[in-house]
Write a protein that binds this DNA or RNA. Structure first.
Lengths: 158, 158
DNA sequence: AGCGTATATTTGCTCCAGCAAACATCTTCA
DNA sequence: TGAAGATGTTTGCTGGAGCAAATATACGCT
C-alpha cells in the first residue's frame, strides 16, 4: 500500500512544488518578503485601485482572516500597504498597496519571473507546459470551488 | 508584468497544490496527524527495518534537523516511533516506526489514497496524469538534486 | 425604534518550524 | 597520543499561522 501509485504521484507533486517554492522563497527573503506577503502584494497590485477587502484577501489566499490581519499588519509596518476604511460598511477595511509597495514589486518581479522560468516553466516544452497547466487548472477548479479570484488569473491565461 | 504567463502558471501551481493538500490535511488531522508527521511515518515504513537516521529524514523531508528532532519527539510521545542508538556511531540515532505506528498507517492510508484519487489523480485522464507526472518528475529532478529518496519513489513508479 | 442574528476584523493563545548555539562524538593528522 | 576540526543531534529563542473569543457594525423583522 505504501508503494501505491497514488502515493507516488502525490509524493512527486509535493517534492516538485516544495522544491520550486523553496527556490523562490530564497529570492523573496533577500528582499525582505515572505511568500505570503508577496502573494498578497501581487493580488493587491492586480486589483483595480490596488485595493481589496480583508475578507477577499483571505478567500483568495486561503489564509484565515486572522492570518490576513497580521500579514497586512506587517505590510503596513513596512510601508508597503495601508488600510482604508470602507465608506459604505464601517465594519470593513480595504487594504491598499502603497507607492512603495508597487516599487517593491517592480524591484522583485523581474528576478522572480526569471526564477520561475529557470526552475519551473522553462524546464518543460511548450506543449508539456500547456498540458501541465491544463491539468493543474482542472485540479484547482475541483479543489477550490470559490476561488474565482482565479477568474482574473484564468482570463489572463486564456 | 503582473499578468505575465509565468506568474499565472505559478499561481495555478500554488492553488492546485495547496488546495489538494488542504483536503488531505483535514483527514490526517482527524487521525491526530500533521502532514509532516505523516510523511515521516510513510518514509519510515518504506525503509528497510522501518528505521532511518535523523539526518536522512531531514534530507528526505526537507525539514531542518531540529525540525526532525521535534517531529520524532511528537511521534515518540504518541508511541508511533522510537529512537534507537546507532551502534557504530554514538552521536547518531535511528528513528524506528513502532507496531502502533504501522497500525496507524494501515488505519489512515486507505482513506488517504481515496482522497488523493478523489481530488487529484482521479480528476485527470490516465494519459493526462501520466504526462503530468512526467513533467513533475522533470521539475523535481531539477529542483531537488540530492533527493534520491526519490530513487525508491521513482523506482516504484517505473 | 429595537432586538436578535449575521458579518468583518482584531486579539489572545497555542502549535509548529527554522536558525544559531550548545553539546557529544568521531576523524584526521602531526 | 592528542589536539583541531568535522559531523549528528538537541535546545533556546523567534516569527508565522490557525482557532476561538471579543468587538464593532450591519441587517431583518416585528
Amino acid at each position: 500500500m505504501l508503494e501505491d501509485p497514488r502515493i507516488t504521484a502525490m509524493g512527486l507533486f509535493v517534492e516538485a512544488f516544495t522544491g520550486v517554492t523553496a527556490r523562490l522563497n530564497v529570492q523573496l527573503a533577500e528582499h525582505g518578503l515572505g511568500n505570503v506577503d508577496f502573494e498578497v502584494l501581487v493580488r493587491l497590485s492586480r486589483s483595480p485601485g490596488g485595493e481589496l477587502r480583508m475578507t477577499d484577501l483571505a478567500a483568495q489566499t486561503g489564509l484565515s482572516t486572522s492570518g490576513v490581519t497580521r500579514v497586512v499588519d506587517r505590510l503596513e509596518r513596512d510601508g508597503l500597504a495601508t488600510r482604508r476604511a470602507c465608506p459604505t460598511d464601517r465594519r470593513g477595511s480595504f487594504t491598499v498597496v502603497t507607492a512603495a509597495g508597487v516599487a517593491k514589486m517592480h524591484e522583485v518581479l523581474p528576478d522572480h519571473l526569471a526564477l520561475i522560468e529557470e526552475w519551473f516553466t522553462g524546464r518543460l516544452s511548450p506543449e508539456a507546459l500547456e498540458a501541465l497547466l491544463c491539468s493543474l487548472r482542472t485540479v484547482r477548479d475541483a479543489v477550490r470551488p470559490g476561488a474565482t479570484s482565479g477568474a482574473a488569473t484564468t482570463a489572463a491565461a486564456a
